[in-house]
Nucleic acid binder design. Structure first.
Length: 741
DNA sequence: CGTACGCTTATTTTT
DNA sequence: TAAGCGTACG
């Protein structure tokens, strides 16, 4: 194993001989290369057994990439190695020790949609007011409790409302346990508790894993961090790679504080900074550095490149969202003429809703594009139905799946029957399927027939190989017939066929060829005794790996995505659109603790995606929630130093806009010396309102104008009041007093 | 039992 | 604007 192709800090990180380490890996600094090379180096140069390495990531994509890059470097079979996502690895542990984890051997995984459905069902069954306790809020509450390691009995409710939440949480847990299902957060919490409570299991893994490598450490939540710490408590060495400046997932529980904590308690003296950037040209990098320097409490890092300054960052201001899209289109054509592939261009935006206008422009111009995000394969309705059948065929007591398909396709089992069944089940604390026998109804009832169909199918299917089993279930469930009769069903049929195909691929990948899908094989991991039937393995796979978003055709397509989705990717040219105050930074973020700084990190992530060209664009007016809104430039635009910027003048267009709409007068210059809109004043009744102004309302008190929209009689302002939150007021009606510029 | 209409609401998202 | 949800109707 030679480390010649690495730079000095990379080499130092890869070949670190002792202790824990924190690798601060800037954007484009070769983070994955360091991680994979270290694994290879440990095995080939330090004679570390592949079995004693644990490498953990957040996404399946990252795990796969790591797996294959390690495999390419080493002449050994890497498949037995523990490289995977937090959820995947915890799942693996729980399968191997299901008894100790107090889970049925047949437990299944709920994705967040399933979880939400279960909660709704629970609320209904317990006659809980869904207005007062919305299922979404309950879901968020339960997840965040679990992410902090808290079971219902550990939560100290402070008021009647949260006391009720905790009660619902407890009901939810009981229901999951009854059904033998675990949600995503539960996978992590159970795995942690398994290690905490079972000495033998704990010491087994503590002794087995000598090297624990963590990718994207800044995205870990406290539960994940606890799990890592416990695993490493037996002397394993933690190797954490991350970038605090790219922490953009606080809203889903990620805790950047884990990095500081890790630095203090584990990696003191072993902090290595990877600051050489191999991606972006100088202007782009310096611009990003200057922007992120405005944040406080950073671990500190300054990216540099020897690639030369390259092109300055282009900033353009357009009169409307449509004009912005049109401008992007023009620039795309120009770049294409310069020889760039469409594939190497990305249009980024803060929120998904912004893609519509851009898509429209691209579509009209006949330019191929691909939008990231949206429905994924395993989330499609027909796929979820098929999987639900497979799940109850495997284990009929799983109520969630039972309910999903008991009357789909319709077989005359209505709300009435279901209600009776629910009552019966909760009276006797049984599953719905078990309750069928007791519910008032004859043996030949539709419900009884359904249960018989499932039981019969179970027997038929368990002796078949996986893919044939999947095919058979799709057939006898009536799904295939149903979708054949539907107008829009042909695509769904194709997806169902694709599911059979996915099962076939799974068989090949997992060496399951010829194995009956219901037969528990010899443990695949003899050390831990893990063993799943092919069907169980496939169902888990489907729950943990939601699959790609459907790829639009066209190889050379422009890439459209949110900034979040762009993390980890890179493009020759990046268009960062919608740089308007209130949109980016998003107005909601301003009321969250540390919200603005997180938005700035998001901006940093976005800028550092670009290799050669970076464009920042903003619209002076934008259609938002069905209303035209007038916008000020994002403060982030001003945070990019002038020396790295080239302003693309759109004077004529701006004047047109002023002339045509004339809701306001141009005035003011921005800090950067550019003529920015600054003309956001909206004159109503002699008063000039501007975004950012302080106002007083006789009833709501003091507030700040967040946005202005409409003209004349339709003029409205979104105002955030200190006491009552954000309101939209008609400026012609509301008696507002301007108290500050 | 399925559809049609009206109401509400509106970041970011992986597992 | 437009999607998602719940109720009312055929």
């Amino acid at each position: 194993m030679t480390l010649e192709q690495l730079n000095a800090p990379q080499r130092q990180a890869v070949a670190l001989e002792e202790g824990h380490a924190l690798i601060l890996a800037g954007a484009g600094s070769g983070k994955t290369k360091v991680l994979t090379t270290r694994i290879a180096w440990l095995i080939s140069n330090q004679s570390v057994s592949p079995l004693s390495i644990l490498a953990v990531t957040f996404t399946n994509k990252a795990a796969k990439e790591m797996q294959s890059r390690v495999a390419a470097m080493l002449p050994i079979d890497t498949r037995g190695m523990w490289i995977g996502t937090f959820h995947g690895l915890c799942h693996r542990m729980l399968r191997a020790h299901s008894r100790d984890a107090q889970l049925p051997q047949t437990f299944q995984i709920l994705d967040s949609t399933d979880q939400l459905a279960l909660i709704k069902r629970l609320l209904k069954a317990n006659s809980i007011d869904q207005e007062k306790y919305p299922a979404r809020d309950i879901q968020r509450f339960i997840s965040s409790c679990k992410e902090q390691g808290q079971r219902p009995d550990a939560v100290a409710p402070e008021d009647p409302y949260s006391r009720r939440l905790v009660e619902i949480y407890a009901l939810y847990e009981a229901q999951c346990q009854r059904e033998g299902v675990v949600d995503f957060a539960e996978l992590l919490l159970r795995a942690l508790e398994l290690l905490q409570r079972h000495e033998a299991v704990r010491s087994h893994y503590q002794q087995r894993f000598r090297h624990i490598l963590v990718d994207e450490f800044q995205d870990t939540n406290s539960l994940q961090y606890q799990w890592l710490k416990l695993l490493a408590a037996g002397g394993a060495r933690l190797f954490a790679v991350g970038d605090d400046d790219q922490s953009i997932y606080a809203f889903r529980g990620a805790n950047v504080g884990n990095m500081t904590d890790f630095e203090h308690h584990y990696a003191a003296g072993n902090v290595i900074r990877l600051e050489q950037n191999y991606r972006s040209h100088g202007h782009i990098l310096d611009a990003a550095n200057a922007l992120i320097a405005q944040n406080t409490g950073r671990l500190g890092k300054n990216l540099w490149t020897d690639a030369g300054q390259g092109e300055p960052v282009r900033v353009a201001q357009l009169p409307s969202d449509h004009a912005e899209a049109q401008w992007v289109l023009d620039e795309i054509r120009a770049l294409r003429d310069e020889g760039l592939d469409h594939q190497q261009m990305a249009i980024l935006y803060r929120s998904n809703a912004q893609s519509r206008v851009l898509e429209h422009a691209l579509f009209t111009a006949g330019i191929a594009y691909r939008v990231y995000g949206g429905l994924r394969f395993f989330e499609r309705q027909e796929i979820k139905h098929a999987l639900a059948y497979l799940r109850i065929v495997h284990r009929i007591d799983e109520d969630s799946s039972f309910l999903r398909v008991v009357n789909f396709p319709a077989r005359g089992i209505g709300a009435r029957s279901i209600e009776a069944l629910n009552d019966q089940a909760s009276r006797n604390q049984t599953s719905l399927a078990q309750a069928v026998a007791h519910v008032a109804g004859k043996a030949g009832s539709a419900l009884a027939q359904f249960v018989m169909l499932i039981q019969k199918t179970s027997q038929e299917v368990f002796v078949l190989p996986l893919s044939e089993a999947v095919d058979h279930v799709i057939e006898v469930s009536g799904l295939r017939t149903y979708y054949r009769t539907q107008r829009d069903g042909s695509e769904r049929i194709e997806n169902l066929d694709e599911l059979v195909n996915a099962a076939k691929v799974f068989e090949l990948e997992q060496d399951l060829a010829g194995l009956p899908c219901g037969q528990r094989p010899i443990a695949s991991d003899p050390e831990s005794g893990e063993s799943m039937t092919p069907l169980e393995a496939f169902l888990s796979h489907a729950a943990l790996e939601s699959g790609d978003t459907q790829a639009q055709a066209g190889q050379d397509a422009i890439q459209l995505m949110t900034i979040h989705a762009a993390k980890g990717l890179e493009f020759d040219a990046v268009f960062l659109t919608g740089l308007e105050d209130g949109l980016f930074p998003h107005e909601n973020s301003l009321y969250e603790l540390g919200g603005l700084q997180e938005e700035r990190r998001l901006m940093y992530v976005a800028m550092t995606r670009a290799r050669k060209r970076l464009y920042l664009s903003l619209a002076q007016s934008r259609m938002l929630h069905g209303q035209t809104r007038y916008c000020l430039p994002s403060r982030f635009v001003d945070e990019v130093p002038e020396q790295h910027v080239k302003h693309l003048s759109q004077r004529a267009a701006v004047d047109d806009w002023l002339g045509a709409a004339a809701p306001a007068r141009a005035s003011g210059r921005s800090a950067s010396g550019t003529q920015l809109s600054g003309n956001n004043g909206l004159v109503v009744g002699g008063q000039t309102f501007r975004v950012g102004q302080g106002v007083r309302h006789p009833r709501f008190g003091e507030g700040t104008i967040l946005g202005l929209s409409g003209l004349g009689l339709d003029a409205q302002a979104q105002i955030h009041f200190l006491d009552v939150g954000t309101k939209t007021l008609a400026l012609g009606v509301a008696k507002l007093e301007i108290i500050a510029a």
